[in-house]
Structure formats: C-alpha cells, structure tokens
C-alpha cells in the first residue's frame, strides 16, 4: 500500500524544470512499479499454487473461458496473420536465399527469425493489444465500481477469482497461438516462395528447418511464450486491480498497462536472446 501511495504522490506531484528532478522522479516511479509488479506476481503465483483447486466448480469454468478468450477466439486472426507473415517475410526470405545460393542457411534463418523471435513476440503483442487492454478496462471498471470490495466482503479472494483464470488463460493462450503462428507462417511462406519459383521441394524446406531446431528451441519457446503470457496478465491485472481507481482513471491506466506490457515483453525477449547465446 505504501508503494501505491508513493506512486500516486509521485504521479500527482507538480512538474519541475529541473531535468535531474524529472529523471529522478521517473526512475523512482520505475522502481516502485517494478516493486509493485514483482509483489503482485509473487502473490498471484502463491494463490495459483495454494488455491488452484479451491472452489473449482466456480473458478475452473472461468479458466476455460479465459483460455477461449486469449486463445481459441483469437485463432482466426492469428491464421490470417500467419498467412500475411508468411507471404510478406518468410516467402521473400526463402526465395531470396534460394536465388542467391544461400539456401543452406534457410533452416537456421527461419528458426532464428520466426521460431525464436517473431512468432512469440508478435503473438505477445497481439494478445496484449486484444485481450490485455480489455483486461485492464474490465478490472479497472470493476475496481472503480466497488465490485472488488464486494467480492472481499463475500469471502471471495479477488486474486483467486479474477486474476488466476486470466493469468492461466493468457499464459496458455500465448503459448498455443505462438505455435499456430509459427507453423502457419512457415507453411504459407514456403507456398509463396514455391509459387515464385524457388528451387526447393517441400521436403528440403521442412527438413532444413527440422535440422536447425534443437531440443533447447522447443524448451525455450515453451518457457518464453508462457512467460510472455504470464507477464502480460500480471501487468494488465496489476494496473486494473491493484490500486484504487475512479472510472475516469481507467482509460489512462489501460494505456499505461499496454506500454508497460510492451516494455517488459521486449526486455524479457532480450533476456532470452542472451540465454540462447550462452546455451
């Protein structure tokens, strides 16, 4: 609570001409936000661990709904995106590499660009925009209208009832959609290159990609996408729920949550690049 109170004081304090004061305030806000997010993430993990099966007949249907919302419902959009990504990037890369005689590097290129980077990051950004922003608005409105206090008064843990399903749903949603996006982009990319006359059979193409994939790619892809989903859910739920809000604050908080989500996903992505490099 102290951290949140300090947050508000820092945000509401009048601006200053001094650059160092401005920078100091921004830094302090950043650390307070990280502190709040970290604490919220730990509380959420603790609740998932301890209460996953508590009130299962009430909460588990919510988890299924959230998986559908962050996963199945977005599938048509992701298939379209996979086609577009395949035609725009993968297909051109495949045909260009084949034309300049660098076809041997195709598998490695596809694994680095599509499997490791573009697939997970693009999925995370789209889930953040489509579901994460809606999360902040829903939870922020519920908070502003006093529904969270009402849950507490009825003996219902808001983190268990509202946050846990969203976190699980988003983590699994980002994981599944990343896989579909990668498979769709690689397939449609090859089709585009094939219609452009790239001298490569489907067998060669997929064989090269399979050769370039190691067990670590599968493990880190799963870890990365689950972490992206968890991070997006924590950031959006924290902004919507963890601090007292008025209705007029909700849109501002939604913008802030999306910005924080993008920054944190990119930072996490950089961390995974280092992890790939050292393993």
């Amino acid at each position: 609570m102290l951290a949140l109170a300090n947050h508000q004081v820092l945000r509401d304090s009048p601006g200053s001409c001094s650059y160092s004061v401005y920078l100091g305030r921004k830094l302090l806000l950043f650390f307070l936000t990280m502190h709040g997010l970290g604490a919220f993430a730990l509380i959420t993990m603790g609740v998932i661990w301890r209460k996953f099966n508590v009130a299962a007949k009430v909460v588990h249907p919510h988890i299924r709904q959230e998986i559908a919302r962050s996963g199945t419902a977005l599938l048509p959009m992701f298939l379209f995106l996979a086609l577009a990504l395949g035609f725009l990037i993968v297909g051109q890369t495949v045909s260009t590499l084949a034309r300049v005689g660098a076809g041997d590097y195709l598998g490695t290129m596809m694994v680095i660009v599509v499997v490791r980077e573009l697939g997970p990051l693009l999925t995370a950004m789209l889930v953040l925009a489509r579901v994460g922003s809606a999360n902040v608005i829903e939870l922020g409105t519920a908070r502003a209208l006093g529904e969270v206090e009402a849950l507490e008064a009825l003996g219902i843990d808001p983190v268990h009832y509202l946050i846990m399903p969203r976190v699980i749903g988003m983590a699994l949603g980002v994981f599944s959609l990343s896989i579909y996006l990668i498979i769709g982009a690689l397939t449609s990319g090859y089709l585009f290159a094939f219609f452009q006359g790239a001298p490569m059979t489907p067998g060669d193409y997929f064989h090269q990609i399979a050769d370039a994939l190691g067990w670590l790619d599968f493990a880190l892809l799963a870890l990365k996408t689950l972490a992206f989903g968890f991070l997006i859910a924590v950031v959006t739920c924290y902004n919507g729920l963890a601090q007292p809000l008025r209705l007029e604050d909700v849109s501002r908080v939604a913008v802030r949550a999306v910005t924080q989500g993008i920054i944190l996903c990119v930072t996490l992505d950089a961390f995974f690049i280092i992890l790939y490099a050292i393993t």
Binding site: A56, K57, V58
Partner: peptide, 21 residues
C-alpha cells in the same frame, strides 16, 4: 455493488457456490 456480468440469480448464488464449491 452487484457484478454486472452476471444475472441477478447468479449474483445471489455466487457467495454460496464459492464457499461450498
């Protein structure tokens, strides 16, 4: 402070459903 995404009956049922699963 009712939950707007539920019906009236669901609102009333929620506390007991959650408490007793």
């Amino acid at each position: 402070q009712l939950f707007n995404r539920m019906s009236i009956a669901e609102n009333v049922a929620l506390p007991i459903r959650y408490r007793d699963d």
